[in-house]
Structure formats: structure tokens, C-alpha cells
Amino acid sequence: MDIHQVIVTEEMAGERLDKAIAGLEPDWSRVRVQEWISNHRVLVNGKIKKESYRVKLGEKVEIDVPEVVDSDILPENIPLEICYEDEDVLVVNKPRGMVVHPAPGHYSGTLVNALLYHCKQELSGIGGVARPGIVHRIDKDTSGLLMVAKNDLTHHSLVDQLKEHTITRMYLAIVHGVIRHERGLIEAPIGRDPKDRKKMAVEHRNGKHAITHFTVMERFAKATYVECKLETGRTHQIRVHMKSIGHPLIGDLVYGPVKNKYGFEGQALHAEVLGFTHPRSGKRIELKTEPPLAFAQLMEKLRSE
């Protein structure tokens, strides 16, 4: 049983109960939320309400999210590009297009399915049945380095390092427009977009502190190749921050132009560098991986403009 509690904000007030809940998490479809409501898994101030109920400011909403049962998540022999592995930690280079963990609509073909096959029972259980070993995520259409905990000791250590901002995370991105200055710092809070709660946005009232550093690597006629360093790790942070300064990622149909001018599948974003302190040995480990071939192909196309 996974109980989520939320207090209705001004942005949510007046919305239908099913719509307000569905907007809280990208994985929660409105149909699935309606099923929870009909099964009395949703309470408003401790009472059962209909899906059409209009939530009010300050009300407490409790959502009993059913766990994915074991039989839904099966080990699958999916090839993994392993960049580092020992008895405690596994670091993989996740391909673009792979979902990290099972969710409605994605119960197979995920990184977790592959990890269950590769690691057998050697995965941290802190993430629950649906997310064994998963310490942090990267988006489905983002490629690159992702660390996995094989036991609870490792999981706790890596989560603490994330909270203390001692983990190095560098990304490569190709953005629309020409950035004139060589480097920059974007410090802007990120939270749910009040106009579309399935998206994130720079949100000064209810957002969480977020900092992204970027350095220009190469300029093209109508685009820029940048390296971004995360100081914090908010959902969609680089995508939202680059959009906020007028340079959304190429291929990002959520935060960028609806028309995909260059035909790039998914956002042009790659987790290039991952550095952390090993939970057991205390040794600093830093890994680096090259972006996928599609990056090079896109850059050649941009150079020819």
C-alpha cells in the first residue's frame, strides 16, 4: 500500500477530483484515477467523494495507490550496456526510448525488467516492487548514465548523496537558437505547471529550488550544443530551465515547438557524466559515456545549415 497525501492548492481548487489527482503524477492517467475513486481508494478530508467532486482549497486528499503485483514485473533478457558493476552498485548507459520502471502502459521492456534478469535477487528493495534498485530516474527519451543500488545500504548512501548535491551529473544537450554567451547559470524554482499539471514549469510560488549550469560547446546557424551540470535534480530540470531562457531542447515536443523540424526522436539530451562516492569503499567513482549516434547525425545536419 502506497498512500499519497496532498493539500489542495489554489491552482488545483475548483478542479474535478479525478482531474486534480491525475495531474499530480505523469504516470497517473485519468481513467486509472477514476478506477481508484470508484474503488474507494481516494478520500477527501477522510470522506469518499465522486470523481466529479470539485476540490476546495486546503482540503486533504489521500490516494491509496495500488502496488504493481509481482506477476506484472517479470525478468526479461534485454541487453544492457554496463559501464560499472560490483557487489553494491551498477551503472548502465540507458538507451533513448527505454522506460526506467514499470508504470501503467509500460509493464515490460523497461530497465527494471532488464535489471531483474541481470541481477536476479540482488537489488535494493527500498523502491518497492515496481522500482527495485532505482535510486534516480532519467526520462524515457533521455539517454545516458543511471546508477542502480544492489542493496539497501547502497541505496541509502546514494540517496543521501543526491540530497547533499555531492553527485556529479553532466548532460549534453542540443537546443534551439544561438546562445551568445559562453556559459551561464539558471537559478529558478521548478514545480507543477498550474496550467497543465502533467508538465513542469518555472514556478516561483510553489516550485522547488533548482540550479543548472551550462557551457556552450558549439554553435550552429540556428542551434547550440551545450553541456549542462545539475546542482539540483528536479523533474525535467534541464528541459524546463533551457525553455525558460528561450532555448528549448531540439526534439522536445512537450517544452519546445510542436513541429519537430529536425525529425529528432525525443529530446536531444544525454546524461554524459556521473560521479559518486562508493558507499562501501569511500572511493570516488566518475564515469563518462558518449552520446548516441543520433546526436552526431543531428549535429552534422545542423552544421550543414
Rank of each mutant, 00 (worst) to 15 (best):
201 A>P: 05
240 V>S: 00
200 M>C: 07
234 R>E: 04
222 K>R: 14
214 F>W: 15
194 P>Q: 06
203 E>S: 14
189 P>Y: 06
185 L>N: 12
228 C>D: 03
197 R>V: 03
228 C>Q: 01
219 R>F: 10
212 T>P: 09
193 D>Y: 06
250 I>L: 13
205 R>L: 13
184 G>N: 07
179 I>V: 12
237 Q>T: 01
221 A>T: 13
196 D>V: 01
187 E>V: 09
181 H>V: 13
214 F>R: 00
226 V>L: 13
195 K>Q: 13
207 G>A: 11
222 K>F: 12
222 K>W: 12
250 I>S: 03
221 A>C: 13
186 I>D: 05
207 G>D: 09
205 R>Y: 11
188 A>V: 04
222 K>Y: 13
202 V>N: 04
215 T>S: 15
191 G>P: 08
205 R>C: 10
226 V>N: 00
191 G>V: 00
185 L>H: 11
233 G>N: 04
236 H>I: 05
228 C>V: 10
228 C>E: 05
233 G>E: 07
253 L>G: 02
210 A>C: 11
205 R>H: 12
253 L>P: 02
195 K>F: 12
204 H>K: 15
248 P>C: 06
183 R>T: 12
189 P>C: 09
208 K>F: 11
227 E>V: 08
205 R>D: 11
184 G>V: 06
244 S>K: 01
230 L>Y: 03
248 P>E: 05
203 E>H: 15
211 I>F: 09
199 K>E: 05
218 E>K: 15
206 N>E: 14
217 M>E: 15
239 R>S: 03
223 A>Q: 05
210 A>E: 05
248 P>V: 01
252 D>Y: 04
231 E>P: 07
202 V>K: 00
219 R>M: 09
223 A>I: 02
185 L>M: 14
214 F>P: 01
224 T>A: 08
196 D>A: 09
241 H>M: 11
197 R>G: 01
244 S>H: 08
242 M>Q: 05
225 Y>C: 09
223 A>E: 06
232 T>C: 09
180 R>I: 11
184 G>L: 10
219 R>W: 09
183 R>F: 13
183 R>I: 06
